[in-house]
């Protein structure tokens, strides 16, 4: 690869690269959290309450003297984990229903798409709020609920893609060769529908992280003592005007992570479908 070619690639997909960089840095931080963190994120230190950022505590300490930097690194794990798992659930449901609806058409298609419409009509944040508050607000429950309420977009995308793919020659050829419906769906249609799925999954991770942090901020998300960016922000709200570092850093972390995934998603869309970008 020549220098000119590399420069061209960088210029062409600036969004993609910017997003990728942010996502990589955040993911590395999350993966390496136990080694990067300077303190135990759960360790109380009553001699060091609400210390401003300094060489000992990079991002200061909270109302119980815990190191904010270490808590944020571990919070990154929680946020990313929730993002990935809930989007995984959403993609699984959405892809299955979308493939079935698009491939078999007719009554099945009608029923599935009507169901999607009903789900889209739900005042979803209300429902998520109610369900999470009623069930135990645990990590698993949050991931499942976010997953169960965000698969509709994927289902629509995959269905549209399947509708056009099923009329293509290679699908006809496969059917003539005697491939079963399941084989055609999994081996011939699914691999060709990956691109839009990937885009919508990436954007979905951004959305899931935002929902999780909002829930944690309302106090019904990830529960203490488990660190999460939303949790740290609650303390930021309580100490508003006294300890700016408790509000600033976790918010910036959420902003950058979500920004990274949004940029990556848009970049991927341009990458897979240059028609729109040009």
């Amino acid at each position: 690869m020549t220098k000119a070619r590399i420069r061209y690639l960088l210029q062409c997909h600036a969004l993609l690269w910017a997003g990728l960089c942010i996502v990589c840095v955040m993911s590395l931080g999350a993966i390496l959290a136990p080694w990067l963190s300077t303190h135990n994120p759960l360790q109380l230190d009553l001699d060091a309450i609400l210390l401003p950022p300094g060489p000992e505590h990079f991002f200061g300490t909270d109302t119980l003297g815990r190191d904010v930097f270490s808590r944020m690194l571990h919070g990154a794990r929680v946020s990313l984990w929730i993002g990935f798992v809930s989007v995984g659930i959403a993609v699984c449901i959405g892809t299955t229903l979308g493939l079935i609806a698009g491939y078999f058409r007719g009554l099945i298609d009608e029923c599935v798409m009507r169901f999607v419409d009903v789900m889209l009509c739900f005042p979803s944040f209300f429902l998520i709020l109610a369900v999470i508050a009623f069930l135990e607000p645990s990590l698993t429950n949050i991931m499942i609920i976010i997953g169960l309420t965000s698969w509709m977009g994927v289902a629509r995308l995959v269905r549209a893609e399947t509708l056009s793919l099923r009329e293509r020659d290679f699908v006809h050829a496969a059917r003539l060769a005697g491939a079963s419906s399941i084989r055609i769906l999994l081996c011939h249609i699914l691999p060709n529908a990956i691109a839009p799925m990937l885009v919508s999954a990436t954007l979905g991770i951004a959305g899931a992280i935002l929902v999780e942090s909002s829930l944690s901020f309302l106090g019904i998300g990830v529960q203490h003592p488990l660190p999460s960016w939303g949790n740290i922000l609650i303390e930021g709200k309580q100490t508003l005007g006294i300890a700016w570092w408790l509000s600033l850093f976790p918010g910036l972390a959420i902003l950058f992570t979500v920004l990274g995934y949004n940029l990556l998603g848009e970049g991927l869309r341009d990458f897979f479908d240059p028609r729109i970008a040009r």
Partner: peptide
């Protein structure tokens, strides 16, 4: 637009509260 998309509304609220109100 990208920043607006990614900005958690409650965080922006906290920042602006600190700045304009406090």
């Amino acid at each position: 637009v990208f920043i607006g998309f990614s900005m958690p509304g409650f965080w922006l609220a906290l920042l602006l509260m600190v700045f304009f109100s406090i």
